[in-house]
Design a protein around this nucleic acid. Structure first.
Length: 412
DNA sequence: TCTGGGGTCCTAGGACCC
DNA sequence: TCTGGGGTCCTAGGACCC
């Protein structure tokens, strides 16, 4: 059994903490970032039961004096990047898993900086002193344990799980603290009388697989017994790139679909081209009032990366799905491209609809020139007509960018 | 009065091939 | 006129994560 050298560092109530850092009058007060939906709540707001993901009105019911603040999304990215830079001062083995959290393996850093708990405290001290934010840290032998430990450490704490005491640490904790246990799994486990990780470890892997499916059951059985071999590693290459847009309640017309998918396809295709990627499969998701949603996808022999091809394919798939479902209103549309590969440079004509076969190479070349202008003058400088005119997107691009995964890894 | 946006992985059935 | 098994790919849906 190896030593506990894996750290999980997680910024506390990140968006809300940044707002309180930027505006001292918000400190020690219940605030929420967002409007229609709570993107993040300060700890003062959480004391009232306010949680991320809640609708705004629901949050106000719980906490009438709740202050909603606009998101300074560029500052979130900037400050989180500074925190990551601090982490990289201790080891290059940093795996960033979202804007505000990361794993580190400090195995090779102890001779310079001391044992892992000392490194963890130094990280917390520096992030507090240099950036002004609280970061909680878990230290353990595995990623899963380190992550659970940082959750237990919050707010503004440090929890070290000593090597050899892992199962003792896990046993009393509720199952929903485990990576991979969400509402559905939690409900199934509770129905079986399993509430703690210790109780979960007492269930046979076979029984868990029967209850939760082969892969998921086996994984939870392993994690509950503290078997987690995953190393801290840079992110694997991206497998899909997508974008979505909530529409409120919109009529399911061709105009709405064309406009929405033009905007989404523009985002997705630009990111693909910037990363030198293209994809063979286009998937579309349409959500109807009542949260029911359907998915449609199509896979081509050749990959695409042009905005126009993606727009046409996505709008076509969505229109067909809406017709099949006999719906007349939609609340959300999404498009995603998968089966990614390095762009071949040579773009073949797309055999999607022979009548309207357009030269994919020409579209791609046009898109590249649009990308180049935007790079110099900004996104608003140039765009296809529906994108420019339909710029009523409710969410700023800076927020979308926060959630994007890094595509800058080699694919295939 | 009903949850944003960007992702990953798994499952199950059907088509198709050997 | 159809028995048996194995593998891959595609599609649709769902759970989960931040």
């Amino acid at each position: 059994m190896g030593p506990a050298t894996i750290l999980h560092a997680d910024l506390d109530a990140f968006y809300a903490s940044v707002e309180q850092l930027l505006d001292p009058s918000l400190r020690r007060r219940p605030i929420a970032v967002g409007g229609g939906v709570v993107l993040a709540a300060s700890y003062e707001a959480r004391a009232y039961g306010v949680r991320g993901g809640m609708s705004g009105w629901q949050a106000r019911q719980l906490c009438p004096q709740l202050r909603f603040v606009g998101g300074h999304f560029r500052d979130y990215q900037r400050l989180a990047d500074q925190v990551m830079a601090v982490l990289r001062d201790f080891t290059p083995v940093v795996e960033r898993i979202s804007v505000d959290e990361a794993f580190l393996d400090v195995r090779g850093a102890t001779h310079l900086f001391g044992p892992p708990p000392v490194i963890a405290e130094e990280i917390r001290r520096r992030v507090r002193a240099e950036i002004g934010l609280a970061v909680s840290v878990g230290v353990a032998r595995t990623k899963h344990l380190a992550k659970v430990a940082s959750q237990v450490a919050k707010p503004d704490g440090l929890v070290v799980v000593e090597s050899g005491r892992e199962r003792e640490f896990l046993a009393p904790l509720p199952v929903e603290l485990m990576w991979g246990v969400g509402p559905a799994t939690q409900a199934r486990l509770h129905a079986r009388g399993v509430r703690t990780i210790g109780e979960l470890a007492d269930v046979s892997p076979a029984a868990l697989q029967h209850l939760l499916g082969d892969a998921h059951g086996a994984q939870l059985a392993a994690l509950a017994r503290d078997h987690d071999p995953r190393p801290v590693a840079p992110r694997a290459k991206a497998r899909s790139v997508g974008a979505q847009s909530a529409l409120g309640r919109a009529p399911a017309t061709a105009e709405v679909l064309n406009d929405a998918f033009a905007r989404l396809a523009d985002r997705v295709a630009s990111r693909l081209r910037a990363a030198g990627l293209e994809g063979r499969t286009v998937s579309v998701r349409v959500r109807f009032p009542g949260l029911r949603a359907v998915t449609r996808s199509v896979t081509f022999p050749d990959a695409i990366a042009s905005t126009r091809a993606l727009t046409e394919i996505a709008a076509f798939l969505a229109a067909r799905a809406i017709e099949e479902e006999a719906e007349h209103a939609i609340t959300l549309v999404a498009v995603s491209v998968s089966h990614l590969r390095r762009d071949a440079g040579l773009q073949l004509p797309l055999p999607f609809e022979p009548r309207a076969r357009l030269d994919e190479a020409a579209r791609w070349a046009l898109d590249r020139s649009v990308d180049a202008v935007r790079e110099r003058f900004g996104r608003g400088a140039v765009g296809y007509a529906p994108v420019v005119l339909g710029a009523a997107g409710s969410v700023p691009d800076e927020f979308r960018a926060l959630a994007e995964h890094d595509l800058a890894q080699e694919a295939e």
